[in-house]
Design a protein around this nucleic acid. Sequence first.
DNA 1: CCAAAAGTGTTGGTCTTACACCCATGC
DNA 2: GCATGGGTGTAAGACCAACACTTTTGG
Lengths: 242, 242
Amino acid sequence: MSEKEQRGLSNECLPSAAEHRAPHRRQPHPYVAVDVVVFALGADGLKALLVKIAQGPLSGAWAFPGGFVGLDESPDAAAAREVHDHTGIRNVHLEQLYTFGGPDRDPRSRVVSVAYIALARGGERAPHHSTKYGEATWFAVRRLPPLAYDHGRIARMALARLRAKLAYTNIVCNLLPPTFTLTELQHTYQAVLARRLDRRNFRRKLLALGLLTRRPGARRGNHRPAALYAFRRRSPIVISIL
Amino acid sequence: MSEKEQRGLSNECLPSAAEHRAPHRRQPHPYVAVDVVVFALGADGLKALLVKIAQGPLSGAWAFPGGFVGLDESPDAAAAREVHDHTGIRNVHLEQLYTFGGPDRDPRSRVVSVAYIALARGGERAPHHSTKYGEATWFAVRRLPPLAYDHGRIARMALARLRAKLAYTNIVCNLLPPTFTLTELQHTYQAVLARRLDRRNFRRKLLALGLLTRRPGARRGNHRPAALYAFRRRSPIVISIL
DNA sequence: CCAAAAGTGTTGGTCTTACACCCATGC
DNA sequence: GCATGGGTGTAAGACCAACACTTTTGG
Protein backbone atom coordinates (compact mmCIF):
# COMPACT_ATOMS: atom_id res chain seq x y z
CA MET A 1 0.00 0.00 0.00
CA SER A 2 2.72 2.38 0.65
CA GLU A 3 2.86 4.59 -2.28
CA LYS A 4 6.39 5.58 -2.52
CA GLU A 5 5.82 7.20 -5.69
CA GLN A 6 8.84 8.84 -7.02
CA ARG A 7 7.46 11.63 -8.87
CA GLY A 8 10.85 12.85 -9.01
CA LEU A 9 12.31 16.04 -8.28
CA SER A 10 10.61 18.95 -9.53
CA ASN A 11 7.28 17.55 -9.96
CA GLU A 12 6.17 20.70 -11.41
CA CYS A 13 7.40 19.11 -14.50
CA LEU A 14 4.32 17.18 -14.37
CA PRO A 15 2.86 16.74 -17.63
CA SER A 16 1.42 20.03 -17.62
CA ALA A 17 4.55 21.06 -16.25
CA ALA A 18 4.96 24.43 -17.57
CA GLU A 19 1.69 25.58 -16.32
CA HIS A 20 2.19 25.17 -12.65
CA ARG A 21 5.87 25.20 -12.45
CA ALA A 22 6.42 28.38 -10.62
CA PRO A 23 3.02 29.95 -10.54
CA HIS A 24 1.45 27.77 -7.96
CA ARG A 25 4.31 27.82 -5.61
CA ARG A 26 3.48 29.33 -2.31
CA GLN A 27 -0.07 29.91 -3.22
CA PRO A 28 -2.98 28.75 -1.13
CA HIS A 29 -3.86 25.22 -2.10
CA PRO A 30 -6.18 22.52 -0.80
CA TYR A 31 -5.49 20.64 2.38
CA VAL A 32 -5.06 16.90 2.12
CA ALA A 33 -6.82 14.65 4.61
CA VAL A 34 -7.64 10.99 5.02
CA ASP A 35 -10.88 9.43 6.22
CA VAL A 36 -10.89 5.81 7.24
CA VAL A 37 -13.80 3.39 7.29
CA VAL A 38 -12.70 0.78 9.81
CA PHE A 39 -14.66 -2.45 9.49
CA ALA A 40 -14.68 -5.22 12.05
CA LEU A 41 -16.80 -8.24 12.72
CA GLY A 42 -19.12 -7.97 15.67
CA ALA A 43 -21.22 -10.65 17.24
CA ASP A 44 -24.25 -9.36 15.40
CA GLY A 45 -22.77 -8.53 12.04
CA LEU A 46 -20.39 -6.14 10.38
CA LYS A 47 -19.46 -3.00 12.30
CA ALA A 48 -17.86 0.29 11.38
CA LEU A 49 -16.13 2.74 13.68
CA LEU A 50 -17.53 6.26 14.00
CA VAL A 51 -16.38 9.20 16.05
CA LYS A 52 -18.49 12.06 17.31
CA ILE A 53 -17.44 15.45 16.18
CA ALA A 54 -16.58 17.46 19.25
CA GLN A 55 -16.22 20.98 17.95
CA GLY A 56 -17.52 23.34 15.38
CA PRO A 57 -20.94 23.72 13.86
CA LEU A 58 -21.27 20.00 13.27
CA SER A 59 -20.37 19.01 16.79
CA GLY A 60 -22.40 16.06 17.87
CA ALA A 61 -22.58 14.59 14.39
CA TRP A 62 -20.97 11.24 13.59
CA ALA A 63 -18.21 10.80 11.09
CA PHE A 64 -15.45 8.39 10.16
CA PRO A 65 -12.09 8.92 11.81
CA GLY A 66 -9.76 11.04 9.79
CA GLY A 67 -7.26 13.81 9.83
CA PHE A 68 -4.80 15.80 7.86
CA VAL A 69 -1.92 14.30 5.98
CA GLY A 70 1.30 15.73 7.28
CA LEU A 71 4.01 17.12 5.09
CA ASP A 72 6.24 14.19 5.83
CA GLU A 73 3.86 11.26 5.69
CA SER A 74 2.04 9.47 2.92
CA PRO A 75 -1.75 9.24 2.89
CA ASP A 76 -1.31 5.54 3.62
CA ALA A 77 0.73 6.32 6.69
CA ALA A 78 -1.77 8.93 7.80
CA ALA A 79 -4.58 6.42 7.50
CA ALA A 80 -2.64 3.85 9.51
CA ARG A 81 -1.96 6.46 12.15
CA GLU A 82 -5.63 7.35 12.39
CA VAL A 83 -6.59 3.73 12.84
CA HIS A 84 -4.00 3.23 15.51
CA ASP A 85 -4.98 6.36 17.38
CA HIS A 86 -8.61 5.36 17.53
CA THR A 87 -8.39 1.65 18.04
CA GLY A 88 -4.88 0.84 19.19
CA ILE A 89 -4.60 -1.60 16.33
CA ARG A 90 -1.47 -1.68 14.25
CA ASN A 91 -0.97 -3.59 11.06
CA VAL A 92 -4.56 -3.41 9.96
CA HIS A 93 -5.26 -4.10 6.34
CA LEU A 94 -5.66 -0.75 4.61
CA GLU A 95 -6.68 -0.03 1.08
CA GLN A 96 -7.52 3.12 -0.71
CA LEU A 97 -11.18 3.63 -1.48
CA TYR A 98 -11.56 6.88 -3.35
CA THR A 99 -10.51 10.50 -3.21
CA PHE A 100 -13.15 13.10 -2.55
CA GLY A 101 -12.30 16.63 -3.33
CA GLY A 102 -15.22 18.81 -4.25
CA PRO A 103 -14.62 22.46 -3.44
CA ASP A 104 -17.78 22.54 -1.39
CA ARG A 105 -17.27 19.46 0.74
CA ASP A 106 -16.56 21.82 3.55
CA PRO A 107 -17.48 25.42 2.99
CA ARG A 108 -14.91 26.70 5.43
CA SER A 109 -11.80 25.35 3.86
CA ARG A 110 -10.81 23.41 0.86
CA VAL A 111 -9.96 19.83 1.73
CA VAL A 112 -9.19 16.94 -0.59
CA SER A 113 -9.73 13.76 1.33
CA VAL A 114 -8.41 10.32 0.49
CA ALA A 115 -10.82 7.74 1.87
CA TYR A 116 -9.56 4.35 3.03
CA ILE A 117 -11.05 1.05 4.01
CA ALA A 118 -9.46 -0.66 7.00
CA LEU A 119 -10.18 -4.21 8.08
CA ALA A 120 -9.60 -5.08 11.72
CA ARG A 121 -8.81 -8.69 12.40
CA GLY A 122 -10.51 -10.60 15.11
CA GLY A 123 -13.63 -8.59 15.72
CA GLU A 124 -14.37 -5.25 17.21
CA ARG A 125 -12.30 -3.98 20.08
CA ALA A 126 -13.04 -1.30 22.58
CA PRO A 127 -12.28 1.94 20.80
CA HIS A 128 -10.09 4.48 22.50
CA HIS A 129 -12.13 7.12 24.19
CA SER A 130 -10.40 10.23 25.28
CA THR A 131 -10.93 13.88 25.45
CA LYS A 132 -8.44 14.11 22.69
CA TYR A 133 -10.41 11.99 20.33
CA GLY A 134 -13.88 12.28 21.70
CA GLU A 135 -16.47 9.57 21.64
CA ALA A 136 -15.86 6.66 19.32
CA THR A 137 -18.25 3.76 18.84
CA TRP A 138 -18.78 0.72 16.66
CA PHE A 139 -22.03 0.83 14.72
CA ALA A 140 -23.68 -1.96 12.80
CA VAL A 141 -23.21 -1.03 9.18
CA ARG A 142 -26.87 -1.67 8.56
CA ARG A 143 -27.84 0.93 11.12
CA LEU A 144 -25.43 3.77 10.73
CA PRO A 145 -26.63 7.09 12.07
CA PRO A 146 -26.76 10.12 9.78
CA LEU A 147 -23.20 11.09 8.97
CA ALA A 148 -21.52 14.46 8.67
CA TYR A 149 -20.13 15.87 5.44
CA ASP A 150 -20.19 13.42 2.58
CA HIS A 151 -19.47 10.49 4.84
CA GLY A 152 -22.76 8.84 4.01
CA ARG A 153 -21.52 8.54 0.49
CA ILE A 154 -18.19 7.21 1.69
CA ALA A 155 -20.01 4.63 3.78
CA ARG A 156 -22.02 3.37 0.83
CA MET A 157 -18.99 3.23 -1.40
CA ALA A 158 -16.89 1.46 1.22
CA LEU A 159 -19.47 -1.21 1.83
CA ALA A 160 -20.02 -1.74 -1.87
CA ARG A 161 -16.29 -2.07 -2.45
CA LEU A 162 -15.81 -4.49 0.40
CA ARG A 163 -18.69 -6.64 -0.81
CA ALA A 164 -17.39 -6.66 -4.34
CA LYS A 165 -13.88 -7.60 -3.29
CA LEU A 166 -15.11 -10.51 -1.23
CA ALA A 167 -16.12 -12.15 -4.47
CA TYR A 168 -12.83 -11.94 -6.27
CA THR A 169 -10.05 -11.57 -3.72
CA ASN A 170 -8.91 -13.23 -0.52
CA ILE A 171 -9.53 -9.99 1.35
CA VAL A 172 -11.71 -11.78 3.87
CA CYS A 173 -8.59 -13.15 5.55
CA ASN A 174 -8.09 -9.69 7.02
CA LEU A 175 -11.30 -9.93 8.98
CA LEU A 176 -10.56 -13.33 10.46
CA PRO A 177 -8.18 -14.62 13.12
CA PRO A 178 -5.25 -16.76 11.97
CA THR A 179 -7.26 -19.96 12.19
CA PHE A 180 -10.97 -20.36 11.81
CA THR A 181 -13.62 -22.89 10.98
CA LEU A 182 -15.38 -23.06 7.68
CA THR A 183 -18.57 -22.03 9.41
CA GLU A 184 -16.88 -18.94 10.81
CA LEU A 185 -15.61 -18.13 7.34
CA GLN A 186 -19.09 -18.52 5.95
CA HIS A 187 -20.57 -16.34 8.68
CA THR A 188 -18.04 -13.66 7.81
CA TYR A 189 -19.14 -13.72 4.21
CA GLN A 190 -22.75 -13.63 5.24
CA ALA A 191 -22.21 -10.75 7.64
CA VAL A 192 -20.56 -8.64 4.98
CA LEU A 193 -22.86 -9.59 2.14
CA ALA A 194 -25.97 -9.52 4.32
CA ARG A 195 -27.33 -12.62 2.67
CA ARG A 196 -27.28 -16.32 3.29
CA LEU A 197 -25.10 -18.74 1.43
CA ASP A 198 -25.67 -22.44 0.97
CA ARG A 199 -23.34 -24.22 3.35
CA ARG A 200 -22.55 -27.18 1.13
CA ASN A 201 -21.87 -25.12 -1.95
CA PHE A 202 -19.84 -22.62 0.04
CA ARG A 203 -17.61 -25.26 1.59
CA ARG A 204 -17.10 -27.09 -1.65
CA LYS A 205 -16.20 -23.91 -3.51
CA LEU A 206 -13.80 -22.57 -0.92
CA LEU A 207 -12.02 -25.88 -0.47
CA ALA A 208 -11.77 -26.38 -4.22
CA LEU A 209 -10.01 -23.03 -4.58
CA GLY A 210 -7.05 -24.32 -2.64
CA LEU A 211 -6.59 -21.04 -0.77
CA LEU A 212 -7.07 -22.72 2.57
CA THR A 213 -4.94 -25.15 4.45
CA ARG A 214 -6.01 -27.44 7.22
CA ARG A 215 -4.70 -26.70 10.70
CA PRO A 216 -4.27 -29.22 13.46
CA GLY A 217 -6.78 -29.28 16.25
CA ALA A 218 -10.42 -28.37 16.24
CA ARG A 219 -12.76 -25.79 17.59
CA ARG A 220 -14.62 -27.46 20.41
CA GLY A 221 -17.94 -26.23 21.57
CA ASN A 222 -21.09 -27.80 22.82
CA HIS A 223 -21.36 -29.89 19.74
CA ARG A 224 -19.35 -31.69 17.17
CA PRO A 225 -15.86 -30.19 16.91
CA ALA A 226 -15.11 -28.23 13.75
CA ALA A 227 -11.94 -28.50 11.71
CA LEU A 228 -9.65 -25.48 11.72
CA TYR A 229 -8.31 -23.83 8.61
CA ALA A 230 -6.03 -20.96 7.74
CA PHE A 231 -5.32 -19.01 4.59
CA ARG A 232 -2.32 -20.39 2.80
CA ARG A 233 -1.33 -16.88 1.80
CA ARG A 234 -2.40 -13.60 3.23
CA SER A 235 -1.01 -11.47 0.49
CA PRO A 236 -3.71 -10.14 -1.80
CA ILE A 237 -4.85 -12.56 -4.47
CA VAL A 238 -7.24 -11.95 -7.29
CA ILE A 239 -9.33 -15.00 -7.99
CA SER A 240 -13.00 -15.67 -8.52
CA ILE A 241 -14.26 -16.90 -5.18
CA LEU A 242 -18.03 -16.61 -5.24
CA MET B 1 5.88 13.98 16.24
CA SER B 2 5.58 16.40 13.56
CA GLU B 3 2.82 14.16 12.40
CA LYS B 4 0.71 15.03 15.34
CA GLU B 5 1.47 18.65 15.11
CA GLN B 6 0.60 18.69 11.51
CA ARG B 7 -2.75 17.36 12.21
CA GLY B 8 -3.74 19.83 14.66
CA LEU B 9 -4.49 19.90 18.17
CA SER B 10 -7.13 18.05 19.78
CA ASN B 11 -9.36 15.97 17.83
CA GLU B 12 -8.01 15.09 14.59
CA CYS B 13 -10.21 12.18 15.12
CA LEU B 14 -13.01 13.90 13.52
CA PRO B 15 -12.42 13.14 10.05
CA SER B 16 -13.51 16.44 9.25
CA ALA B 17 -13.01 18.00 12.54
CA ALA B 18 -9.67 18.57 11.20
CA GLU B 19 -11.29 20.18 8.31
CA HIS B 20 -12.93 22.92 10.14
CA ARG B 21 -9.79 23.63 11.94
CA ALA B 22 -8.02 24.09 8.73
CA PRO B 23 -8.86 27.69 8.09
CA HIS B 24 -7.38 28.66 11.38
CA ARG B 25 -4.07 27.05 10.68
CA ARG B 26 -1.84 28.22 7.94
CA GLN B 27 0.96 25.78 7.76
CA PRO B 28 2.69 24.12 4.87
CA HIS B 29 0.73 21.20 3.51
CA PRO B 30 1.02 19.03 0.43
CA TYR B 31 0.08 20.24 -3.00
CA VAL B 32 -2.66 18.39 -4.82
CA ALA B 33 -2.22 17.45 -8.45
CA VAL B 34 -3.92 15.28 -11.05
CA ASP B 35 -2.38 13.03 -13.67
CA VAL B 36 -4.51 11.76 -16.51
CA VAL B 37 -4.04 8.66 -18.62
CA VAL B 38 -5.97 9.48 -21.78
CA PHE B 39 -6.81 6.39 -23.80
CA ALA B 40 -8.03 6.40 -27.38
CA LEU B 41 -8.39 3.87 -30.13
CA GLY B 42 -5.89 4.14 -32.91
CA ALA B 43 -5.83 2.29 -36.18
CA ASP B 44 -3.27 -0.10 -34.76
CA GLY B 45 -4.54 -0.58 -31.27
CA LEU B 46 -5.01 1.27 -28.02
CA LYS B 47 -3.14 4.53 -27.56
CA ALA B 48 -2.29 6.72 -24.61
CA LEU B 49 -1.35 10.37 -24.64
CA LEU B 50 2.04 11.42 -23.32
CA VAL B 51 3.65 14.82 -23.03
CA LYS B 52 7.32 15.58 -23.03
CA ILE B 53 8.59 17.34 -19.96
CA ALA B 54 9.98 20.66 -21.09
CA GLN B 55 11.79 21.93 -18.03
CA GLY B 56 13.70 20.80 -15.02
CA PRO B 57 16.02 17.88 -14.47
CA LEU B 58 13.67 15.47 -16.18
CA SER B 59 13.17 17.55 -19.28
CA GLY B 60 12.90 15.35 -22.28
CA ALA B 61 11.26 12.52 -20.39
CA TRP B 62 7.71 11.45 -21.14
CA ALA B 63 4.87 11.64 -18.66
CA PHE B 64 1.11 11.71 -18.55
CA PRO B 65 -0.54 15.11 -18.70
CA GLY B 66 -1.28 16.55 -15.32
CA GLY B 67 -1.29 19.65 -13.22
CA PHE B 68 -2.14 21.17 -9.92
CA VAL B 69 -5.63 21.31 -8.55
CA GLY B 70 -6.70 24.85 -7.96
CA LEU B 71 -8.30 26.07 -4.79
CA ASP B 72 -11.67 26.43 -6.41
CA GLU B 73 -11.85 23.34 -8.56
CA SER B 74 -12.37 19.68 -7.82
CA PRO B 75 -9.82 17.08 -8.88
CA ASP B 76 -12.38 15.89 -11.41
CA ALA B 77 -12.59 19.36 -12.90
CA ALA B 78 -8.83 19.68 -12.92
CA ALA B 79 -8.53 16.39 -14.78
CA ALA B 80 -11.12 17.50 -17.33
CA ARG B 81 -9.26 20.75 -17.78
CA GLU B 82 -6.01 18.92 -18.40
CA VAL B 83 -7.58 16.71 -21.01
CA HIS B 84 -9.14 19.64 -22.75
CA ASP B 85 -5.94 21.64 -22.72
CA HIS B 86 -3.98 18.84 -24.30
CA THR B 87 -6.47 17.41 -26.73
CA GLY B 88 -9.21 19.94 -27.22
CA ILE B 89 -11.71 17.28 -26.25
CA ARG B 90 -14.50 18.12 -23.87
CA ASN B 91 -16.87 15.68 -22.27
CA VAL B 92 -14.46 12.80 -22.17
CA HIS B 93 -15.29 9.99 -19.86
CA LEU B 94 -13.19 10.44 -16.74
CA GLU B 95 -12.81 8.17 -13.79
CA GLN B 96 -10.55 8.19 -10.85
CA LEU B 97 -7.79 5.61 -10.83
CA TYR B 98 -5.80 5.98 -7.64
CA THR B 99 -4.16 8.58 -5.47
CA PHE B 100 -0.39 8.57 -5.11
CA GLY B 101 1.11 10.56 -2.34
CA GLY B 102 4.42 9.42 -0.95
CA PRO B 103 6.29 12.15 0.85
CA ASP B 104 9.51 11.57 -1.00
CA ARG B 105 8.24 11.95 -4.46
CA ASP B 106 9.55 15.43 -4.60
CA PRO B 107 12.15 16.80 -2.24
CA ARG B 108 11.26 20.37 -2.95
CA SER B 109 7.54 20.27 -2.58
CA ARG B 110 5.21 17.62 -1.38
CA VAL B 111 2.63 16.61 -3.98
CA VAL B 112 -0.29 14.24 -3.62
CA SER B 113 -1.48 13.28 -7.05
CA VAL B 114 -4.89 11.92 -8.00
CA ALA B 115 -4.55 9.80 -11.13
CA TYR B 116 -7.40 9.55 -13.62
CA ILE B 117 -8.30 7.45 -16.61
CA ALA B 118 -9.87 9.31 -19.52
CA LEU B 119 -11.47 7.66 -22.53
CA ALA B 120 -11.60 9.64 -25.74
CA ARG B 121 -14.39 8.73 -28.07
CA GLY B 122 -13.84 8.16 -31.73
CA GLY B 123 -10.13 7.49 -31.88
CA GLU B 124 -7.06 9.52 -31.41
CA ARG B 125 -6.98 13.15 -32.44
CA ALA B 126 -4.10 15.40 -33.13
CA PRO B 127 -2.91 16.57 -29.73
CA HIS B 128 -2.37 20.24 -29.08
CA HIS B 129 1.22 21.22 -29.37
CA SER B 130 2.33 24.47 -27.92
CA THR B 131 5.22 26.01 -26.17
CA LYS B 132 3.11 26.08 -23.08
CA TYR B 133 2.48 22.37 -23.00
CA GLY B 134 5.33 21.09 -25.06
CA GLU B 135 5.27 18.09 -27.27
CA ALA B 136 2.36 15.69 -26.86
CA THR B 137 2.02 12.41 -28.72
CA TRP B 138 -0.13 9.31 -28.81
CA PHE B 139 1.79 6.13 -28.06
CA ALA B 140 0.66 2.55 -28.48
CA VAL B 141 0.12 1.28 -24.97
CA ARG B 142 2.14 -1.79 -25.77
CA ARG B 143 5.13 0.31 -26.66
CA LEU B 144 5.21 3.13 -24.17
CA PRO B 145 8.59 4.77 -23.73
CA PRO B 146 10.19 4.92 -20.29
CA LEU B 147 8.11 7.29 -18.19
CA ALA B 148 9.13 9.91 -15.70
CA TYR B 149 8.35 9.71 -12.01
CA ASP B 150 6.22 6.73 -11.15
CA HIS B 151 4.15 7.09 -14.28
CA GLY B 152 5.13 3.64 -15.39
CA ARG B 153 3.27 2.33 -12.42
CA ILE B 154 0.30 4.55 -13.20
CA ALA B 155 0.32 3.21 -16.75
CA ARG B 156 0.21 -0.41 -15.61
CA MET B 157 -2.52 0.30 -13.12
CA ALA B 158 -4.58 2.25 -15.63
CA LEU B 159 -4.40 -0.46 -18.25
CA ALA B 160 -5.23 -3.17 -15.74
CA ARG B 161 -8.21 -1.18 -14.52
CA LEU B 162 -9.49 -0.49 -17.99
CA ARG B 163 -9.20 -4.14 -18.94
CA ALA B 164 -10.95 -5.26 -15.82
CA LYS B 165 -13.80 -2.83 -16.28
CA LEU B 166 -14.38 -3.95 -19.84
CA ALA B 167 -15.55 -7.25 -18.43
CA TYR B 168 -18.16 -5.96 -16.05
CA THR B 169 -19.27 -2.52 -17.17
CA ASN B 170 -20.43 -0.82 -20.35
CA ILE B 171 -17.37 1.43 -20.21
CA VAL B 172 -16.42 0.51 -23.74
CA CYS B 173 -19.13 2.80 -25.04
CA ASN B 174 -16.84 5.70 -24.18
CA LEU B 175 -14.27 4.55 -26.69
CA LEU B 176 -16.72 4.16 -29.55
CA PRO B 177 -18.62 6.55 -31.79
CA PRO B 178 -22.39 6.79 -31.29
CA THR B 179 -23.06 3.99 -33.75
CA PHE B 180 -20.80 1.12 -34.60
CA THR B 181 -20.81 -2.36 -36.02
CA LEU B 182 -20.44 -5.46 -33.92
CA THR B 183 -17.11 -6.08 -35.54
CA GLU B 184 -15.92 -2.64 -34.51
CA LEU B 185 -17.09 -3.33 -31.00
CA GLN B 186 -15.22 -6.60 -30.99
CA HIS B 187 -12.09 -4.96 -32.33
CA THR B 188 -12.29 -2.44 -29.53
CA TYR B 189 -12.39 -5.20 -26.97
CA GLN B 190 -9.54 -6.97 -28.66
CA ALA B 191 -7.44 -3.82 -28.84
CA VAL B 192 -7.82 -3.17 -25.14
CA LEU B 193 -7.50 -6.74 -23.98
CA ALA B 194 -4.75 -7.55 -26.44
CA ARG B 195 -6.27 -10.95 -27.19
CA ARG B 196 -8.61 -12.42 -29.71
CA LEU B 197 -12.21 -13.22 -29.05
CA ASP B 198 -14.38 -15.70 -30.88
CA ARG B 199 -16.64 -13.71 -33.16
CA ARG B 200 -19.72 -15.89 -32.85
CA ASN B 201 -19.57 -16.13 -29.09
CA PHE B 202 -18.84 -12.45 -28.75
CA ARG B 203 -21.81 -11.42 -30.85
CA ARG B 204 -24.18 -13.81 -29.15
CA LYS B 205 -23.11 -12.68 -25.71
CA LEU B 206 -23.30 -8.98 -26.40
CA LEU B 207 -26.65 -9.19 -28.12
CA ALA B 208 -28.07 -11.37 -25.37
CA LEU B 209 -27.16 -8.75 -22.77
CA GLY B 210 -29.65 -6.33 -24.27
CA LEU B 211 -27.33 -3.37 -23.84
CA LEU B 212 -27.33 -2.65 -27.55
CA THR B 213 -30.01 -1.41 -29.84
CA ARG B 214 -30.12 -1.70 -33.57
CA ARG B 215 -29.71 1.49 -35.60
CA PRO B 216 -31.03 2.01 -39.08
CA GLY B 217 -28.62 1.90 -41.95
CA ALA B 218 -25.46 -0.04 -42.38
CA ARG B 219 -21.77 0.47 -42.61
CA ARG B 220 -20.88 0.00 -46.26
CA GLY B 221 -17.44 -0.96 -47.33
CA ASN B 222 -16.01 -3.13 -49.98
CA HIS B 223 -18.01 -6.06 -48.79
CA ARG B 224 -21.23 -7.06 -47.24
CA PRO B 225 -22.72 -4.13 -45.31
CA ALA B 226 -22.65 -4.44 -41.52
CA ALA B 227 -25.55 -3.65 -39.24
CA LEU B 228 -25.18 -0.61 -37.00
CA TYR B 229 -25.76 -0.65 -33.28
CA ALA B 230 -25.66 1.82 -30.43
CA PHE B 231 -25.61 1.50 -26.67
CA ARG B 232 -29.09 1.80 -25.24
CA ARG B 233 -27.69 3.65 -22.26
CA ARG B 234 -24.39 5.37 -21.86
CA SER B 235 -24.61 5.85 -18.16
CA PRO B 236 -22.36 3.46 -16.31
CA ILE B 237 -23.80 -0.01 -15.83
CA VAL B 238 -22.36 -2.84 -13.83
CA ILE B 239 -23.05 -6.17 -15.48
CA SER B 240 -21.05 -9.21 -16.37
CA ILE B 241 -20.16 -8.78 -20.01
CA LEU B 242 -17.35 -11.15 -20.74
C1' DC C 1 -31.16 -39.98 23.97
C1' DC C 2 -31.60 -35.37 22.49
C1' DA C 3 -30.18 -30.99 20.67
C1' DA C 4 -27.12 -28.63 17.80
C1' DA C 5 -23.75 -27.90 14.68
C1' DA C 6 -20.39 -30.47 11.35
C1' DG C 7 -19.89 -32.82 7.46
C1' DT C 8 -20.98 -34.92 2.82
C1' DG C 9 -23.16 -35.95 -3.05
C1' DT C 10 -26.21 -35.75 -6.71
C1' DT C 11 -28.86 -33.74 -10.17
C1' DG C 12 -30.78 -30.44 -13.49
C1' DG C 13 -30.15 -26.31 -15.60
C1' DT C 14 -27.31 -22.77 -17.33
C1' DC C 15 -23.29 -20.86 -19.25
C1' DT C 16 -18.97 -21.19 -21.83
C1' DT C 17 -16.21 -22.69 -25.34
C1' DA C 18 -14.88 -24.53 -29.56
C1' DC C 19 -15.79 -24.95 -34.09
C1' DA C 20 -17.55 -24.53 -39.96
C1' DC C 21 -20.44 -23.02 -43.25
C1' DC C 22 -23.42 -19.80 -46.09
C1' DC C 23 -24.49 -14.78 -47.36
C1' DA C 24 -24.17 -10.17 -49.33
C1' DT C 25 -21.57 -6.98 -51.51
C1' DG C 26 -17.86 -4.44 -54.52
C1' DC C 27 -14.84 -5.03 -57.83
C1' DG D 1 -17.10 -15.08 -60.18
C1' DC D 2 -14.27 -14.21 -56.56
C1' DA D 3 -12.40 -12.10 -52.54
C1' DT D 4 -13.75 -10.25 -48.31
C1' DG D 5 -15.83 -9.57 -44.28
C1' DG D 6 -20.89 -10.31 -42.25
C1' DG D 7 -23.80 -13.35 -40.25
C1' DT D 8 -25.57 -17.79 -38.02
C1' DG D 9 -26.11 -22.87 -34.90
C1' DT D 10 -24.75 -26.80 -32.37
C1' DA D 11 -22.61 -29.97 -29.26
C1' DA D 12 -19.52 -31.11 -25.20
C1' DG D 13 -17.93 -29.81 -20.98
C1' DA D 14 -17.66 -26.73 -16.92
C1' DC D 15 -19.96 -24.44 -13.55
C1' DC D 16 -23.75 -23.26 -10.42
C1' DA D 17 -27.86 -23.68 -7.53
C1' DA D 18 -30.88 -26.35 -5.15
C1' DC D 19 -31.63 -29.79 -2.11
C1' DA D 20 -31.61 -33.89 2.77
C1' DC D 21 -29.55 -36.88 5.39
C1' DT D 22 -25.85 -38.81 8.53
C1' DT D 23 -22.19 -37.89 12.09
C1' DT D 24 -20.20 -36.23 16.22
C1' DT D 25 -20.19 -34.17 20.34
C1' DG D 26 -21.95 -32.13 25.16
C1' DG D 27 -25.22 -32.23 28.32
